[in-house]
Design a protein around this nucleic acid. Sequence first.
DNA 1: GGTATTCTCTCGCTCAGCGAGATAATTGTT
DNA 2: AACAATTATCTCGCTGAGCGAGAGAATACC
Lengths: 159, 159
Amino acid sequence: MQEQGPEMEIVHLLRAVVVELGAHSARFAQRNGMHPTDVRALIALMDAERAGEEMTAGRLGTALGLNSAGTTALVDRLERAGHVRRVRDERDRRRVTVEVDERAVALGRSHFGPLIGRAVELLGGYDERELAAIRDFLTGVRETAEEDRTGHRAPRPAP
Amino acid sequence: MQEQGPEMEIVHLLRAVVVELGAHSARFAQRNGMHPTDVRALIALMDAERAGEEMTAGRLGTALGLNSAGTTALVDRLERAGHVRRVRDERDRRRVTVEVDERAVALGRSHFGPLIGRAVELLGGYDERELAAIRDFLTGVRETAEEDRTGHRAPRPAP
DNA sequence: GGTATTCTCTCGCTCAGCGAGATAATTGTT
DNA sequence: AACAATTATCTCGCTGAGCGAGAGAATACC
């Protein structure tokens, strides 16, 4: 068994966090009769809403790596459960925008709220330099994974 | 749109990292003709190996949230692809321990290596206090998610 | 020694997601 | 303005991951 520096310990720690948060999300899915993909879809939809963009069925499918048939089935499922609404786009009537129902947002908040609250609480205990370290490290990891996906460097915002 | 403190920004960042690393792992699966669950299984097996524990079929299934039928199918799949070996436990001949093949480890290393290397590189740029902040924050999040799963506080190692 | 328990596997089924292709709306061409 | 080409979503039939029920085999308990 090779001995490694403190860096590898943190890498394994990050991986453990990813696994554990994935399990947390899977628990939310199971408790509410949903599948992991459904939760990923709701997250993508809420992210788009927070960013002020509207999410069409096609863009949602692309974001999740589904083809059009799978996307239709996914939106059917979410709509049947009352978590989203299909809204026909009036400017381009081929498109269907998918809107999250407020009750789905509340459901998510009730499950993820405590965890988020605890994370905020933890972050409250750090000073500016420590917060910057956490932020920069996470940003760096996210950008590296993104670059690997898109095949090119993500544009950095000017300082 | 409510304005939030710097804490929520980091929470969203962590969530983005989880999503992006999940996608990175899904890409590894797809490129090698595997499913997300197969990758999770390999990770669990390698974690157990690093911890010096042997992983039985049953324990693996429990760790992934599968029932026994699904676990058998999973191990069948991994064995057929040559990623693991079934080894009948000689002390308790009901048990089957699952061992990762060295080639699967190499395959994983070739995919995740660059990302891990970049993370280590990033971590090399921080001093002790910053590293401690990153480590403690990730540990805190992991423990909170764990507590939610197990229903009780995880034991903290003495300082 | 016999019964209960534990671990894995088999069988039949459900449903998420895929490939192929249909349908409808938009954009481009002449 | 009619016609073709493109785009967005949906329908149909199929494959395969994972489940429930239960069988088979080894171990633990009394």
